[in-house]
Amino acid sequence: MDKKTMNTLLGALERMKEDNMKTQMKMEELAWKQISLPCTLIEALSSLTKYELDCIRKNYNIKGISSLKKNELATELARQIPMLYKNIISNLDKERYELVKKIVKQSGYLNKFSLSFSKINSLKDYSILFPGNYLGDKVLFMPLDFMNAFSEIDSPKLQKRSNVIQPGLILLKDYSIFMDVWTRLV
């Protein structure tokens, strides 16, 4: 590849990176919507966009409802997801388990946290917690449905299990990052 083509490609990549950063910043701004607490799953889901609801649907591998309108999709997800919470809770790694436990102990929300937006988004994509603005503060909040499910099955055995899951997830994450980079290069 000649130098001119290489510079053109590098310039295009740099512009894509800048556009991606701008989009990410806009998404972060939009995520901190005014909320009322406590909040149910249907209330949290109803505040999301159709795209965000569809991401949640895909993460749970729920089929046959993608053509629903936004409000219908939120309602159907709120009906189906609580039946899947037990599986999600029992597969939390140590970091997420401790975060969930902390939020449950603090009446369902945190206003002081140090999670990256990508981690917040990944937890939102499983309806575990959501970002919001409560009484003028950015908070992470958990739907009552999830808090109740967690409280029902939380135990020392579950906590031990979360300690074991972490190393395996790190390996999977490293592999996932490698595959993502590899796919972009090829």
Rank of each mutant, 00 (worst) to 15 (best):
K22A: 03
Q24M: 09
M16V: 11
D54A: 00
A44C: 13
Q24G: 11
L45Y: 02
T49E: 00
M21C: 04
L53F: 02
C39M: 05
L37C: 02
W32D: 13
T49R: 12
K17W: 03
K26G: 10
K26A: 15
L30D: 15
T40A: 02
T49Y: 01
E52G: 08
T49M: 05
E18Y: 10
T40C: 00
D19E: 14
A44P: 07
M16R: 07
R15L: 15
Q24W: 11
Q34H: 14
L48K: 01
L13C: 02
A44I: 01
D54L: 04
K33C: 12
E28S: 03
S47C: 05
E14S: 07
P38M: 07
K17Q: 13
E52T: 14
Y51A: 15
N20F: 11
M27Y: 09
Y51H: 07
K33F: 10
N20Y: 13
M16I: 04
K33M: 10
P38K: 03
D54I: 12
R15Y: 13
D54P: 07
R15I: 15
L13G: 10
K17A: 09
A31S: 15
K50D: 01
E29C: 04
L45N: 04
L13N: 05
A44M: 07
L13H: 03
M16Q: 12
E28A: 04
Q24E: 14
S36I: 04
K33R: 15
E52C: 05
M21W: 12
T49S: 12
Q34W: 07
W32I: 11
P38W: 05
E29R: 01
T49N: 01
L13V: 06
N20V: 11
D19G: 11
K22L: 13
M21N: 14
K50N: 06
L13W: 07
S47T: 06
M27N: 15
S46M: 11
L53P: 06
K17F: 08
K17Y: 07
M27S: 13
E43A: 14
W32C: 07
E43I: 09
L13T: 04
E43P: 04
E14G: 06
W32N: 10
K33W: 08
D19I: 05
A44E: 00
P38A: 06
K17T: 10
E28L: 06
C39E: 05
L37M: 07
C55E: 02
L41Y: 07
C55R: 10
E28N: 07
